[in-house]
Design a protein around this nucleic acid. Structure first.
Lengths: 225, 225, 225, 225
DNA sequence: AATGAATGAGCCTTCATTCAT
DNA sequence: CATGAATGAAGGCTCATTCAT
C-alpha cells in the first residue's frame, strides 16, 4: 500500500530497545498521530489528511510526525495495518468456538463475527479501501484473505460439506459477505441492528453451500452439523 | 457530485446552417476529453489525471477543457456518469428476456449480465470508486441501485418466490454480487473467464432464495433455518 | 551540476520536454528569471537563491519558473551555461588576431582577453565555482578547458616554442592564470585596473615558456616571438 | 565565516582542579565532532553534513554538539580553522631550510611544500571553499595569505632578486600556484604524483622572477637564481 | 473559441535548534 | 552534562484555474 519509499537515512527507531520513559512518551505521540490520521480520514477523506492537518489534530508538530513515520504514505500504511489488525482481532475472537459447532450454527456465528469486525471502523475502512491502488496488493486485502481462509477452513473442517474447490468457495463467500457489509455500513448503517441482516447473510452462505456441496444430498444435513 | 451545470447544447437546430458542424466539433471535443480522462485514469490512476495531462492526451488545450467542463471535478463527474450509463446499458440489454424465464434460468442470465456489465471497464470502475468523495452519495451507487432494483423486480415478478422483503433481499444480493465482482476484477481477473464463477454466483443467489423465499417447497430446509 | 533529482511521481514531463521559450513573451520571462537568479547569487550567495526569492525578483510566480526550468538545479545549471558562454564569447573575440602575432606579443593580449573574460561577472563566477560539487565535471570547467585549449594551440602554432607536452603546459598555465584572476577579482578587485597585473601575468606565462620550451636556448627568443 | 560567536571555551585552566579530567573528555568529544564533520563533508558534501548526521557519526547526541559549538556554522568554522592550521603547519615545516638556500633551490622546495600542504585533505579543502559565504573574508584565505607572505619573504630574503613590488609578486605567485593545485587536486588528482608538476610549478615561479626581478641583469639571471 | 503562459495556495519534507528529562 | 524528542520555519515543487492574446 505504500508506493513511494525513499530510504532516507539510517535512522531506525523501530525496535523496542529505546529507553523506557522516552518510549512511553513516544508511544503516546505515535498513538496520537495515528488516531488523528484515522479521524481525519474518516471524517473528511484522504485529501484532507495532509501532514499539517494530522499534526495539528494530534497536537504535535509536523516534525514529530516524521520522527515516527518516514512519509505520509508510510503513516497511512501503518494506520491501515493497525486497522486490519483490529478487525482481524475481533474476528479471531469468534473463531475458537466455531470449530465445535455444526455448520448451520457456525455460519451464523461467523456472520455475527464478521459484522462485528466490520463495525470496528466502517468509515475508515471505506476510505482505506479507496486508497487502495489498482495493482498493489493492499493491506486491506489481508483481512479479506483472512476471512476467506477462515471460511475455507470452516468448510473443510466440517465433514458434512463436500466441495470441489473449497478455497474458491470460501473466497467468493468472503467477498460476497464483505461486499454486503461494506456497502451496508456505508449506505444503510441502520440495517446493522436488524437481525434480519445476519440471517440473510447466513442464508446466503448456507444457501450456496447447499447448492454446491454435498449438503444438497439428503435432507438431514442438520444432524451432521 | 457536480455543482455547475451550464446547458451547453441548449441551442436547437432550428436551422441546419454552419451551427451543426460546430456542435459536432464540440461534441467530438467533449468526447475526446472524456476518453482521454478515462484512459489516464485507467492506466495511471487518479494522481496522473491532471488537467494538463488530460488536455494533452485529448489533443486540446487546458483552456478548452474548461470550456466544456466547469472544473476537474465536474469532468470526472461526467465521466462517472458516462461510465455508469455504459454499465447500465449493458445490464439493461439482458433484462427483456429475463421476465419470461423461470427463476432458475433467469438468475444465471442475470449473473452473466452483471458480469458483462462489470467488464465494461473494470479499471476505470475501480478508480472512479476511489475518487468518490466520502460524503457524497456516489454516482456509482446508482449502478448498484439499478442492479438491486432489477433483482428485486425479478424476484417480485416471478411467482415462484415468496419473500417477506424482496427489496431487502434484492439489495443484499446486488451488494453481494457486486462485492464479488469488483474484488474479482481487481484481484483475480483471470477468474472472469471461468464459467465456474457464473455458476457460483447463480448458486449464491438461488441458494439464498431457496432458503428465504420458497422455503415452503423445500424438503426440510425449514428445519435448518 | 544538478545533483539531486528525486523523481516525484509519474508526471511524464521530466525535464526533457519543458517548454522551450519560443515566443517573445516567454523569452522575456526566461531572461528575467535568469537575471534574477544571477543577481541573487552574486549578492547573497547560493542559499539565498530560493525559488521564491528568484521568482519575486524576476517579477513572476514560482509556477512560471517551473514552466521553463525543471528544477532549481536546472535553472542554476542554465545560468552557469549562459555565464560560461558569455565568458567564452569575450575570450573568443580576442583570438583571431592572436595567431598572426609573435608569442611575446600574443601572450599579453591573451592575458588581456582572459582578464576581460573574467570580468564578465566575477561574483557570479565565484558563486558558481562554489556550487561545483567535488566529483562532477562542472560546466565552469568548460571555460578553463577552453582557455587551456587556446593556450595550447597558441603554443603549438608558434613555431619558436618547442615543448615536450604542450597540453600539460597549456592546462597548467590556464589554471594558474585563472587562479590569479579569480582570487584577484574576489579579493583585490582594485588591482584589475593596474596594468602591472597584465604584465605580471604575461611574464608568468612567458617566464614558464622560457624555462620550458626551446626558448631557453639562445637569448634572442624575442625575434622569433 | 560564522555569525554567532559565543565564547565557549573561554574559560582557561586557571586552576588545575577536577576540571581537568572533564576537560580531557570534552576535548575528546570536540575532536570526535570535528572529525565526524570532516569525514561527512569529504565523503558526502555539505548537504549531508546535518547536525544529526554529524552527531551520529561522532557518537554523541545533537545536544552535545551544541554543548561545544554554538551553532552548525560555528562548528564548520572551527573545522575550517583546524584545516587551515594543519595546512599551515605542513607548509611551515618546510620553511626553516628555505632561507639558507639559493632561490633556484628554494623555490622547488617551496613548491614541494605547497603541494604537500594541499594534500592534507583536498576534498575537505574543496568543500570548505564551497561553504565560504560570499561576503566574509574566508578563513581559507588565511592560508593563501600565509603562502603569499612566505613567498614574499623568500623573495625579499634572497639578495639575488630585485623586485619592484615583492608583495604583489608573492601574492600573485601564491594565487597562481594555489589555482593550479586546487584545480589539479579536484580534476586531475593523478597528476599529483607526477614530478613534472613540481618542476612545472617551480619553473612557473622562477620564470616570472626571471622576467621581473633580475631582468635588469641581462640573460644571465640563471646563475644568480 | 482556442490557446497556453501565468498564478499562487498549498503540499510534503527537512533540519537547525531548543529543552524537559 | 547528556540525551533525543519536539519544534516549526522554510524550501522545492505541483497543479487547478484564470485570462490576455
Amino acid at each position: 500500500m505504500s508506493p513511494h519509499n525513499r530510504a532516507h537515512n539510517a535512522g531506525e527507531e523501530r525496535s523496542s530497545d529505546r529507553r523506557k520513559p522516552v518510549q512511553a512518551r513516544s508511544k503516546a505521540t505515535v498513538e496520537a498521530i495515528l488516531t488523528a490520521t484515522a479521524q481525519i480520514l474518516e471524517r473528511s477523506g484522504p485529501e484532507a489528511a495532509t501532514t499539517k492537518a494530522i499534526a495539528a489534530r494530534a497536537g504535535v508538530s509536523v516534525g514529530s510526525l516524521y520522527q515516527y513515520f518516514g512519509s505520509r504514505d508510510e503513516l497511512i500504511d501503518a494506520l491501515a495495518h493497525r486497522h486490519v489488525d483490529a478487525m482481524r482481532k475481533v474476528l479471531s475472537e469468534a473463531l475458537a468456538e466455531l470449530i465445535s459447532l455444526p455448520l448451520e450454527a457456525a455460519i451464523p456465528r461467523l456472520m455475527t463475527a464478521l459484522i462485528a469486525s466490520h463495525r470496528v471502523n466502517p468509515r475508515l475502512d471505506h476510505v482505506l479501501h479507496q486508497l487502495t491502488p489498482i495493482s498493489d496488493t493492499a493491506i486491506l486485502d489481508d483481512f479479506q484473505d483472512f476471512a476467506a481462509t477462515i471460511t475455507t477452513t470452516a468448510l473443510r473442517t466440517h465433514p458434512d460439506t463436500d466441495l470441489d474447490d473449497p478455497e474458491l468457495v470460501g473466497s467468493i463467500l468472503a467477498q460476497a459477505v464483505s461486499g454486503v457489509l461494506r456497502t451496508t455500513l456505508r449506505r444503510f448503517p441502520e440495517r446493522l441492528g436488524d437481525p434480519a441482516l445476519e440471517r440473510l447473510l447466513a442464508d446466503l452462505v448456507l444457501g450456496l453451500l447447499g447448492r454446491q456441496g454435498s449438503a444438497t444430498r439428503g435432507a438431514g444435513s442438520t444432524t451432521a452439523l
